[in-house]
Design a protein around this nucleic acid. Structure first.
Length: 563
DNA sequence: GCCGTTTTCGGCCCGACTGTTTTCAGTCG
């Protein structure tokens, strides 16, 4: 699948077009098309072969022609053409906060600055003071020095705990702040933190938060600071009567906001962060999000869905799904114990699961060939089952299910034979090995695993580790089709660095009526909490409880996994 | 470059903050 490559090319076009000083709407158009293709839940090559490129949102004649060139010849002459118009170095300079297309163009063209290192030298020499002004030079110099610490996005637990730390600090100063932005939308990675407050002066308190390293800007309504960890925190202050509109605006996403504002315009109203207004400027709504949605004739859209992926259109016709909730989860079907690489024993895991209100817990220790994880042999599994039986007697009606995380070996064969696999209450297969295999081979392994009669679930299908390792380049539409044809289940793994399947594919899978299971993949009792993150992915993938196997009670799950 | 229950041309979300621009351009979210 070349979706990521094509999206990347279009994103480059967007940046180049901006740096070349072209009409800024061109750049926006490229970026929108890039997003469309990045989030496309089918193979772009398939769309192209079937002549459906023009059906994609934000793809018109111009962009379709470029995609056609790339997919048919493997070349992208349009990139080189545009590059010729951009002075060398401008793109790199634009990565710096405070340098936009204008400044980058000027610095690269007039001063021949080609890199951040060169910019640093020029700034230190003072030669740019006349051009940029004293303040700006100083600010940029600070930025250049800071830029050397790599920019990173936080995983959800880190983002949540930082947000909690900041809001506790504010609370100690008798100020309430509300977390918004991508954290409120439940995105798998969070770049910066966004808060809304209804108390004047909140910005002054934020600036005194102990982790603050520098102040990016500070005004009566908006304050932005940078923490020593490199994370940016933005705070905006509003009147209580504006709170709902403010939360909507700051929760985003940006593209969702644009669609919402356009919808307001089409109804002769105006929507901004202060409220919804009629054509005479009179306020119609703003105090709560519910009020604003309703005044626009929309159903309430849960934050997790606000990504401009059709949710506004769905809300207009009352088709927002009732998203799955964490309270509806009745059990966990992938956890590990001390039998393999877990830190807690089976009984502790079961007690912790019961304490969460679950009816059942599927213990899925690794199979034999995962030697690094102390994978179990047939003999050890039989011993484990005895232990499970006795705990089950004690804890009834709570039930521990005998599962396995079964290794799909490099050659596509499974760790155990069919006869033994039938003795488990269910089998989840995983592909951990063989990164360097071709996409075709990996796809074949995944498809044959999910098609195997002894396998019920494919765990974390791409095996990605966010920020550390790309997932296997498997053909996911093909995998989804195989799961559907064989009536099998795909997993959303709740480990914060996995969250695999990705939300885009989760949505596609359920559209094809493939059941999903949301698991914590816990390796300790505490990690059972990771279920929450998996549920967020499900919600971002528009799942209802009906789509999620483990929103069913024990009876329903056993029926579905009947062997 | 894309798009259309006002439009196939003329728009494209809307506002805060910074700096030294004495009225607004650049950048950002």
């Amino acid at each position: 699948m070349k979706n990521a490559e094509v999206a990347d090319l279009l994103m480059q076009m967007s940046l180049l077009s901006e740096a070349a000083g072209e009409d800024r709407f061109k750049s926006i158009a490229y970026r929108r098309a890039a997003t469309t293709i990045k989030e496309l839940s089918e193979d772009i090559e398939k769309v192209w072969r079937e002549n459906r490129l023009l059906d994609l949102p934000y793809v018109g004649e111009g962009i379709a022609k470029k995609i056609d060139e790339y997919l048919s010849t493997g070349e992208a002459t349009f990139i080189d053409k545009l590059k010729a118009k951009v002075p060398e170095g401008a793109l790199e300079l634009m990565k710096l906060q405070g340098i936009g297309p204008r400044t980058a163009y000027k610095l690269a063209k007039q001063f021949g600055i080609k890199s951040l290192d060169e910019l640093e030298r020029e700034l230190e020499s003072g030669r740019l003071k006349e051009e940029l002004g004293e303040q700006k030079s100083k600010k940029l110099l600070d930025e250049v020095k800071k830029s050397k610490t790599v920019e990173r996005r936080m995983l959800l637990p880190e983002a949540e705990s930082l947000a909690a730390e900041i809001s506790n600090y504010m609370e100690q100063n008798r100020l309430k702040v509300f977390s918004t932005g991508s954290l409120r939308r439940g995105k798998s990675t969070v770049g910066d933190l966004d808060f809304v407050s209804t108390t004047a002066g909140a910005g002054d308190i934020l600036m005194r938060f102990p982790g603050v390293e520098s102040i990016i800007e500070h005004g009566p309504k908006r304050t932005s600071v940078k923490l020593s960890t490199g994370i940016q925190v933005d705070l905006r202050v509003f009147e209580p009567s504006q709170f709902g509109a403010a939360m909507m605006y700051f929760t985003g996403s940006k593209e969702h906001n644009i669609t919402m504002r356009n919808l307001a315009l089409s109804k002769k109203m105006k929507l901004n962060e202060y409220g919804l207004f009629d054509s005479s400027g009179k306020v119609i709504a703003g105090r709560s999000e519910e009020e604003v949605f309703s005044a626009l004739g929309l159903q309430f859209i849960p934050p997790e869905m606000r990504e401009n992926r059709g949710e506004v259109e769905a809300a207009l016709v009352g088709k927002i799904p009732e998203l799955v909730k964490i309270q509806e989860i009745k059990g966990d079907l992938q956890v590990h114990s001390t039998w393999s690489d877990g830190e807690s024993d089976v009984k502790s895991m079961a007690m912790a699961a019961k304490a969460l209100g679950y009816e059942y817990l599927g213990v899925t220790d690794h199979s034999l060939s995962m030697r690094v994880a102390n994978g179990l042999s047939e003999e050890r599994f039989r011993k484990q089952w005895k232990e499970i039986d006795s705990i089950n007697e004690e804890m009834a009606p709570f039930k521990i299910l005998k599962g396995v995380e079964l290794e799909v070996r490099g050659d596509g064969t499974l760790d155990f034979d069919r006869k033994f696999l039938e003795e488990f209450e269910y089998v989840g297969a995983s592909i951990h090995q063989g990164y360097r295999q071709s996409p075709d081979k990996l796809t074949h392994r995944a498809v044959s695993a999910i098609s195997n009669p002894s396998v019920d679930i494919l765990f974390h299908p791409t095996n990605r580790l966010i920020g550390r390792r790309e997932g296997h380049q498997i053909d996911i539409p093909k995998l989804i089709k195989a799961a559907r044809d064989n009536d099998k289940i795909l997993e959303i793994d709740g480990q914060p660095d996995r969250l695999d399947l990705d939300e885009v594919w989760v949505r596609r899978a359920w559209e094809e009526r493939v059941t999903l299971v949301i698991d914590s993949d816990a390796h300790s009792t505490e990690q059972l909490q990771f279920m929450r993150y998996g549920v967020l992915v499900g919600r971002r993938g528009w799942l209802t409880s009906r789509a999620v196997l483990n929103s069913q009670g024990l009876k329903g799950v056993l029926k579905r996994l009947k062997r």
